[in-house]
Amino acid sequence: MSEKYATIYKTIGQNIRRYRKEKGFTQETLAEKASISMSYLTKIEAPNCDKSFSLEVLLDISSALDIDVRNLLENIYSQPTI
């Protein structure tokens, strides 16, 4: 992952985590619903996220959470880029 966008990826990962918890989903449940591995989701949600992800994965996760993908992009522009 490019260090230039690391903060943005971390923010998105934290948004995913927050919405997952609001829905009462475990990481295993969300990973299954989004058709990704639990280890991949764990890396995406980690506070020290070092895993990039595609728009397709983001859309799959938002669909699994039954939310608009824009919700997962909240606060990304309030974070400074490196």
Score class of each variant (00 low, 15 high):
residue 31 A to S: 07
residue 62 S to C: 06
residue 44 I to Y: 02
residue 25 F to P: 03
residue 43 K to V: 00
residue 59 L to S: 15
residue 26 T to K: 06
residue 22 E to I: 11
residue 3 E to W: 02
residue 4 K to W: 07
residue 23 K to D: 10
residue 50 D to Q: 14
residue 41 L to F: 08
residue 32 E to D: 12
residue 65 L to I: 09
residue 56 E to L: 13
residue 22 E to A: 14
residue 38 M to Y: 10
residue 5 Y to L: 08
residue 75 N to S: 13
residue 38 M to P: 01
residue 63 S to R: 12
residue 47 P to H: 13
residue 67 I to T: 01
residue 82 I to A: 12
residue 35 S to R: 13
residue 19 Y to D: 12
residue 69 V to N: 02
residue 54 S to L: 00
residue 64 A to I: 05
residue 13 G to Y: 06
residue 58 L to T: 01
residue 68 D to M: 10
residue 15 N to L: 03
residue 13 G to R: 11
residue 60 D to I: 00
residue 59 L to M: 15
residue 58 L to S: 06
residue 43 K to T: 01
residue 64 A to N: 08
residue 75 N to E: 12
residue 62 S to G: 04
residue 45 E to R: 04
residue 27 Q to A: 11
residue 61 I to L: 15
residue 60 D to C: 03
residue 71 N to I: 00
residue 42 T to C: 01
residue 40 Y to N: 06
residue 9 Y to N: 02
residue 77 Y to C: 01
residue 57 V to H: 05
residue 17 R to V: 10
residue 80 P to I: 05
residue 62 S to N: 04
residue 1 M to H: 04
residue 23 K to C: 13
residue 35 S to Q: 14
residue 46 A to W: 07
residue 77 Y to L: 02
residue 75 N to V: 06
residue 49 C to M: 02
residue 32 E to P: 00
residue 20 R to K: 01
residue 44 I to T: 12
residue 10 K to S: 04
residue 38 M to N: 12
residue 79 Q to V: 09
residue 70 R to E: 09
